[in-house]
Nucleic acid binder design. Structure first.
Length: 1137
RNA sequence: UGCGGUGUGGCCAAGUUGGUUCUAAGGCAUCCGUCUGAUACACGGAAGAUCACUGGUUCGAGUCCAGUCAUCGCAACCA
């Protein structure tokens, strides 16, 4: 395609041959590479090979000075899963800015990384081995289990490396950091020790999500796996808690033997045996209601929040007939009367004691009284909350504040344990409930719902006021799909709350893209920080480097292998052992290491592992094995200038990086962060394997090429907006942007090859180049300036769109189109040289500007250009530099007048269209009303361009517009608005009423004094906006302030010329269809028709020149091709002469 | 439920500090044409939007404020 068809057909002189012939003469000339078609996929392959062979990536780092580093951190993906299209998105963002900085002369060292620990890997292994958590250490040794994990986790690394390479993401894959390696672990230990030394580590007993089915605690991250929160229907119970009649509670009793009870609602009846207290709200109003229990029909007075009365009692039964109900034989549950007898604030209830609801186990210490809870609301339940400190975080906290412990029994080892054990079943002390599971954890077909059982029991014992099914959202274990329990577990915490203030401060110095993610989402998260639960009771992860004695009174936190060695030696000496530091720091080996306190007490390792998020948050240090190695490198590379990941990392990696850096180094970990949005399918649904709508990154890249994929992703939506991924647009990107750019290059290459242009000539000074060259160079420099700024500000979308507009609209569709003739006509001249140099500069610059986003095609383009000219020594665009803007050549006036030219042309073409006058038909003149001098000057400079573009003979400016042009006037709101304020409306109405005379008067006087209800207002010419709206009797078009009229009258001569052009067109078509060579001379005979006579007589020579005809004649007897000319079929005889 | 984002023609989307030059860019798709020595994945034109809704501030609101709705994401022990 790049070479004309004729050139490719045999037997004919081809430009290729010509160029080869010349090559022989000019030895150093080599042709610009031309292509049959644009094949981005093929280009990908070639460039990948080229980059690899020439170590371009390595050079792009090493060629930049160490002193100018731009630091980027790669968030480690887990190689346990396959890469998806959203990874391509995230990595495009990362790659773009790294490449950009490289091209700004900076050294961007970027180490790949792998996140290798964590639950997903363990679960994959368990699934594949067909084992459960409980089997570890029994059916399979921890050692073998971990070996399996290590093997499993890197299984998709090939796929990841492949996608990384194919999409053109440059990152050092050869030396990645891997979180399971000893060096990495050692660094993590070191960081942890720093925190330990600052007193930021503590062990605490807290309520955590726990999966009995999986036998393990769950992190909040795990709880937030998609689909974990499910709507479930649970049996809920409103319990009746019998109040003890005491001095303190006397106010609640009126009658003798009155049965007064608290009502408290729960969705987890199985926690009722563990009830220890009831919580009320301080300011909530409670009422005592006299009524009957709906199950036992016993008379009872119940206490609940006033606001929730309507939820549990029928309005119609208020103050119903107690006596009638009492005496009726058949008690109708729906007719139970009730009466509000007492009203009081919650704080009055505090301290009231009640009887234990389900007395299986007697508690130690204080219990069964009313306390205050700040979390109590009246949006649900009864306004009184059942408190079971062993099974709720709030419960535990509020219990502790009031000196009420959780209900526990001693297990076989004498340790306190809740009434439900870690398998999720009731302990033996729980009476008839003993041994029963609280949920169906074992998939037992005969499982009986324990909640129902409890509810039934309570009903019969007059302890339930209401039992019903209730649908609510409850978390489930993502692995086992079973409901989670909130369960007390021993854990190590990082006191993140202590560093909260500093974290907030430091966060304010970070440049977030978009800003709201940092200010709001991340900011709010920091404001509501909790301590960081570090503990994971698992096997495959970094072991907690803390050794303790049994009582927990003595402990050592290890910060290096060296230190561990010393401690081991010390312990060996003290305890007479022969231990050594294991080669692998993972469990189980490390568990065997026993250390020793100074006074000779045995210390064993805390069995927990460290949360994997701590692993990844430590990567700035651990990736370099800091502080044990690479101290300089670390210094150069901390903190990061830039990181980027998906928004989902806000509370993940973005947080852990920030938290660790703040606490350990009192520094930010990154100065700028781009959080990109989700990649959705074209219907805005989340991509997931389940829907089958997930785009395969490999297929996408293989089909459209990496550049089109990357360009589409960044140009279509800003990275932080969700992207609706739609293949159609990918194809459009390829066709429109890359296709146009490719065509532009092909055009250049075609003629440059013919003319042997290799930029060896001296640069034609810009002032000697024609207007249009100055214009495109001006635009080009404006583009450089803006795109550079956009990249620097992490605004890739703006950059891409600007480049795209430049290439498609300005370079291809205007510059090249208008300049075509300059390239093909005649021998090399200064003008032609200027055209080549200008176009070359544009292409070369575009290649550099687009290189960060579209690294493949940009490099192809750059290389194809530079190989011939040798203008730059770099072998790849990625070793080159973003061009410096030349402010001097930016000419906004020029840009404006070309804009006029484009718009005026467009208006004329639109008029032609309206009047049905094809462009081939020349017209005499265009009328242009001139409203100010500078406008005329501007237009005059581009007059010829417009005329040739729209095929019109002359311009006529209407300067004295009075009487010719109908003008319209309106006030200039911008200048007047502030001045006139409220009067604006009245003025605007007056101005709207102005006729042509007034407008003319204003123009000639240069102002106007307006009378507004007696108030004189002086207005200058600037206070009006005058436009020419219409020219009576002419065909007129408007575009903003531009008005153009077209003289559509056709003289005979114009018609004839139009016909001549039609003839040229038809004859050229025939030449083409007959496969004549461009240089063949021809002779033409045309069937006689009177409409041709004048065309031939007046413009015959023109036609002959255009079509290379030696003769052209009209004749009546012609055999040849039938051709349609203005609706008449005529015979043409065109033959070689 | 709370927090945050988004809501502009069939689709993708521009739209700074409010200004009748936003009488709302551009692209895709649609329709109608055109050029043709870049033979095209080209060019031109047309049609298509009460800027989610309601109210407010203002002389003036796509733009600012409040509320509502829709949608997406995040968070959550909610009893």
């Amino acid at each position: 395609m790049a070479t004309p068809k004729k050139v490719e057909t045999k037997k004919k002189v081809s430009t290729k041959k010509t160029s080869q012939a010349t090559t022989a003469r000019k030895r150093r000339w080599s042709a610009y590479k031309t292509y049959k078609k644009l094949d981005l996929v093929q280009m990908d392959k070639e460039l990948l090979a080229f980059w690899k062979k020439n170590k371009v990536f390595e050079k792009s780092v090493e060629e930049r000075p160490k002193s100018k580093s731009f630091v980027f951190y790669e968030g480690p993906p887990s190689a346990n899963g396959k890469p998806g299209i959203h990874h391509v998105m995230a990595r495009t963002v990362k790659d773009t800015f790294c490449r950009y900085r490289t091209m700004k002369g900076m050294r961007v060292e970027r180490k790949a990384g792998w996140d290798t620990h964590g639950l997903p890997i363990e679960l994959t292994v368990e699934k594949e081995l067909g084992i459960t958590k409980e089997d570890i250490g029994k059916k399979i040794s921890v050692d073998d289990y971990n070996k399996q994990c290590r093997k499993t986790v890197m299984r998709f690394t090939d796929l990841w490396n492949d996608v990384t390479t194919k999409m053109g993401y440059w990152v050092d894959l050869k030396n990645p950091y891997i979180t399971y390696e000893n060096n990495y672990i050692e660094s993590v230990w070191n960081i942890l020790q720093r925190l330990y030394k600052k007193g930021l580590l503590y062990k605490g007993y807290t309520i955590q999500p726990y999966s009995p089915a999986a036998g393990t605690g769950l992190s909040s991250h795990e709880l937030n796996q998609p689909g974990c929160y499910k709507d479930v229907k649970d049996t809920t119970v409103v319990g009746q808690f019998k109040i003890k009649r005491e001095e303190h509670s006397e106010f609640l009793f009126a009658r003798e033997n009155e049965d007064v009870r608290f009502l408290a609602w729960t969705t987890t009846p199985w926690t009722l045996p563990s009830n220890m207290a009831l919580a009320v709200g301080k300011k909530i109003t409670y009422v005592k209601v006299d009524t009957y229990n709906p199950y036992t029909f016993e008379r009872v007075s119940v206490v609940l929040a006033e606001d929730l009365l309507g939820k549990w009692f029928k309005e119609s039964n208020l103050d119903g007939d107690f006596e009638a109900f009492e005496t009726s034989e058949k008690k109708d549950r729906s007719k139970i009367p009730h009466q509000v007898v007492e009203k009081f604030k919650g704080n009055l209830l505090v301290g009231v004691n009640y009887e234990q609801l389900l007395p299986y186990v007697k508690p130690e210490g204080d219990a069964f009284r009313v306390i205050l809870g700040d979390f109590v609301t009246t949006s649900d339940g009864t306004g009184i909350v059942h408190i079971a400190p062993t099974f709720g975080a709030d419960d535990k906290r509020v219990g502790e504040q009031n000196g009420i412990k959780g209900l526990t029994v001693e297990d076989e080892n004498g340790n306190p344990t809740p009434l439900v054990d870690k398998q999720g079943k009731f302990v033996k002390e729980a009476g008839e409930l003993a041994g029963k599971y609280v949920k169906n954890y074992k998939d037992d077909a005969n499982y009986e719902n324990i909640d129902v059982e409890i509810a039934v029991k309570l009903k019969t014992e007059n302890k339930a006021f209401n039992v019903q099914k209730y649908e609510h959202n409850y978390p489930h274990c993502w692995r086992t799909d079973k409901p989670v329990l909130y369960y007390p577990l021993d854990s190590w915490f990082i006191k993140a709350t202590a560093a909260k203030k500093r974290m907030v401060e430091l966060n304010k110095t970070i440049q977030w893209k978009p800003a709201h993610t940092g200010e709001k989402r991340f900011g709010n998260w920091l404001e509501n920080l909790n301590d960081w639960n570090l503990s994971r009771s698992r096997y495959w992860g970094i072991p907690l480097p803390i050794w303790r004695n049994e009582e927990g009174t003595k402990e050592i936190c290890i910060g290096s292998i060296e230190e561990l060695k010393k401690e081991v030696a010390f312990a060996n000496k003290k305890l007479g052992m022969k231990q050594s530091v294991p080669k692998d720091l993972h469990r189980p080996y490390i568990d065997d290491v026993v250390l020793c306190s100074k006074d000779g007490e045995k210390l064993t390792r805390e069995l927990d592992l460290i949360d994997v998020w701590f692993d990844s948050g430590s990567m700035p240090y651990a990736q370099w094995h800091y502080p044990f190695e690479n101290k300089d490198k670390f210094k150069r590379n901390f903190p990061a200038d830039f990181i980027a990941e998906g928004v989902d990392q806000t509370r993940g990696w973005f947080y852990t990086l920030h938290a660790i850096a703040t606490m350990a180094f009192d520094s930010v970990a990154y100065k700028a962060v781009v959080s990109n949005g989700l990649v959705l399918d074209k219907d805005a649904r989340k991509m997931s394997k389940r829907w089958g709508n997930a785009a395969d990154p490999f297929k996408t890249i293989d089909k459209y090429g990496a550049d089109a994929t990357r360009w589409y992703m960044l140009s279509n939506a800003q990275p932080w907006d969700n992207l609706r991924f739609n293949e159609e647009y990918l194809d459009e990107t390829r066709r429109k942007f890359f296709g146009t750019l490719y065509n532009t290059y092909s055009f250049f290459a075609l003629y440059a090859n013919i003319d042997k242009f290799n930029y060896s000539e001296k640069e034609v000074p810009l002032r000697q180049r024609p207007e249009i060259d100055k214009w495109i160079i001006s635009l080009l420099n404006s583009l450089v300036k803006e795109v550079d700024a956009d990249y620097a500000d992490y605004e890739p979308t703006n950059a891409a769109r600007k480049i795209q507009t430049f290439v498609m609209d300005n370079l291809s569709n205007w510059y090249v189109r208008l300049c075509r003739r300059r390239f093909w006509k005649g021998e090399m001249s200064k003008d032609k040289l200027a055209a080549y140099q200008t176009l070359y500069t544009c292409l070369d610059t575009v290649a550099k500007l687009m290189a960060p986003i579209a690294p493949f095609y940009a490099d192809r383009l750059y290389q194809d250009l530079n190989k011939v000219t040798g203008k730059e020594k770099h072998i790849s665009v990625h070793l080159a530099f973003i061009p410096k803007v030349n402010e001097k050549v930016i000419d906004k006036d020029l840009e404006q007048r070309m804009d006029y030219a484009q718009r005026i042309s467009s208006l004329v073409l639109s008029l032609r269209k309206k009047e049905n006058l094809r462009v081939r038909q020349p017209l005499q003149r265009v009328l242009l009303p001139i409203l100010d001098k500078s406008f005329q000057k501007q237009v005059e400079a581009v007059k010829d361009l417009i005329l040739s573009e729209v095929n019109v003979k002359e311009f006529e400016y209407i300067t004295d517009t009075s009487g010719v042009v109908n003008k319209s006037i309106k006030p200039n709101f911008k200048t007047l608005g502030r001045r006139l304020g409220k009067n604006m409306k009245a003025v605007s109405q007056k101005v709207a009423g102005f006729g042509q005379e007034e407008i003319t008067a204003i123009e000639s006087k240069g102002g106007y004094t307006l009378d507004l209800d007696g108030e004189k207002i002086d207005l200058s010419l600037e206070d009006f906006v005058i436009t020419s709206a219409d020219i009576p009797g002419w065909s007129v078009a408007n575009d903003g302030s531009l008005t153009v009229a077209l003289d559509i009258s056709l003289t005979e001569s114009l018609k004839a010329e139009g016909m001549a052009r039609e003839l040229v067109n038809r004859i050229q078509n025939l030449r083409k269809s007959k496969d004549f060579n461009v240089t063949d001379r021809i002779k033409v005979s045309i069937e006689h028709h009177e409409m041709l006579e004048k065309a031939i007589s007046e413009f015959g020579d023109y036609v002959k020149t255009e079509v290379l005809a030696d003769s052209i004649e009209l004749s009546n007897s012609i055999k040849g091709d039938k051709v349609d000319l203005d609706g008449v079929m005529l015979t043409f005889d065109v033959r070689k002469n």
